[in-house]
Design a protein around this nucleic acid. Sequence first.
DNA 1: AGATTAATTGCAAACGTATGCAAGCAAAAT
DNA 2: ATTTTGCTTGCATACGTTTGCAATTAATCT
Lengths: 340, 340
Amino acid sequence: MTELRVTSLDVAKLAGVSQSAVSRVFTPGASASKETITKVRKAAEKLGYRPNALARAMITGKSRIIGLVVAYLDNQFYPIALERLSNALQDRGYHILIFTATNTQEAIDKVMQELIDYQVDGIITASVGMTSELTGRCAAAGIPVVMFNRAQDGSGLSSVTSANENGARKIADFLVAGGHSHIAHIAGWGGSSTGRDRIRGFIDGLAKHEKTPVAVIDGMYSRDVSAQATRDLMALPNRPDAIFVGNDHMAFAVLDTLRHEYNMSVPDDVSVIGFDDVPLASWAAYDLTTVRQPVNRMVDATVETILAQIGDKNRPTQKIEIDGPLIIRSSARIPEGWHT
Amino acid sequence: MTELRVTSLDVAKLAGVSQSAVSRVFTPGASASKETITKVRKAAEKLGYRPNALARAMITGKSRIIGLVVAYLDNQFYPIALERLSNALQDRGYHILIFTATNTQEAIDKVMQELIDYQVDGIITASVGMTSELTGRCAAAGIPVVMFNRAQDGSGLSSVTSANENGARKIADFLVAGGHSHIAHIAGWGGSSTGRDRIRGFIDGLAKHEKTPVAVIDGMYSRDVSAQATRDLMALPNRPDAIFVGNDHMAFAVLDTLRHEYNMSVPDDVSVIGFDDVPLASWAAYDLTTVRQPVNRMVDATVETILAQIGDKNRPTQKIEIDGPLIIRSSARIPEGWHT
DNA sequence: AGATTAATTGCAAACGTATGCAAGCAAAAT
DNA sequence: ATTTTGCTTGCATACGTTTGCAATTAATCT
């Protein structure tokens, strides 16, 4: 009904001051007398005025919007991270323009372009890779980018990940100490740095004990693919007695398959270890041994980094790795002498 | 390095046309000759120009941004819905400004205000209630609101939900047909219409068979509260042999508690039924009987409604209910003659 | 060929705000 | 009393677009 937009000019007229005065009252750093402030605030209150964020963004060149690109939301890790990121950024007065994009170059390129159209102050990508051409465009547009839970070598982009190699090494140690002889790995997607780093750390960790995995299969971060990989492993002549799965999300599928298709007992028949420690991992139905990705600290680091780069465009990018502990639960045999 | 923003004026100069011409080339409805179009496109390409969405938004009054307010992301239903909403809106050329807010009046009020500041074209709320004062402000600002998976009586706001009463009635029928004698309900938060509707439907459904629930406990949409409710139910003299839980998320906690704290077998000792049919419900570890909320159709309806209201501000609001089927799995006793 | 119509284009005025500049003014310093 | 200092304030401009208007040009019709 009342289709009119109330502007700073309206407030100015009612308060008997200039438009600039109104603007200054609503601009944190600006100077205004006690008297003007109260007059303006009263008038604004009466008219229900609030500054137009878009107009403000255009003039200042700062939109206070952070673009967030995320691929999959069915892996519980990402909604959790998203929630935390959102809260942390809201506290700092930023807002999140969100895009879901499948992990293909075209989709991501398209989405990133649209983000840039909105003059976002910064971009956070969660679980997606980026074209080098695209990173170039962001750099050209002067938009900082931070990759969350994913890194990209030689991109010159900041990234925040957990210590994937080291985490996978811990898992190798744990499984070997548990006396497993046939150890397999259902890996995260080979197209992701996270997947590759975990493979590398795991193989390296096994090598330290002069062991090699009986098999390494790409699980593509998919339940279906991981379930099939499990079947393939069970069909092997040297059937594994331990499986490290590249993330929790896939590990749940592996557990379901072992228990309900093969009637196997975990960890008596097979030990299973995941990676991430999503909330679901602690639920009694799974009780999954896993390496924790410290979401809170990763989120804090991400927010710090992106804001720092927004504040100082010449600040060098950085690759942050945060170590997480092995969380010992009941899905993998616990070596003698390890304390839960 | 190259800190300069390329504007339509730059393109105009390079192409040897006026700034308006450039604008028209990038404005769908506008008229421009073949020749100008190619000249402008070439120049734009060369300079890497794209129209500034913020400036465009300010002048047209349409930001093509939809505000999305969501409370919790640990219930898998919401990330899934979010993903679908995001995709559907992206396809229509809209973008999502997301806010996570705890389900308290102050938090929601604050968040909604900030959304309005950004001149969003519409607002979708998922799983949060709203102040009547706030709905008033939105109406005053001429911003359409659609509530997703929640309704609000007398608010005059559009809403999209599943047929909660009817769904709960189906569950009552199913449990009674299964021959259960002591039926309990761990309900969704009483502060939500969804929670209340499901209670009403369930009690009504039981009443049709001349039964009443042995207990109705508010599970507050929380795992912990639901687990405790389960313990309380098990301590009852007339211990229930069937529990309808207000949503899947809580039902998982109930299952975990029954199985791992009480060593009970489902459905032999107790039948458990949830509501939502999130992906997790079909995983072998839970295999939960539940009523499906047809997310895709709910999302489609939500998008349709919000866009329709944006297109025509005088369009009457509507409350849409979409019926979903009972998905029969193994967590509840299957009555003779029911076909899975 | 002349007249009517349609399409294209540039000019200029918006949209709602922030901010440099100079003027005003009161208080403090000399 | 005069100067200095510091704080407020209004004026006017800018941000990067879209769009009504009028003018120009091209196309169609009689």
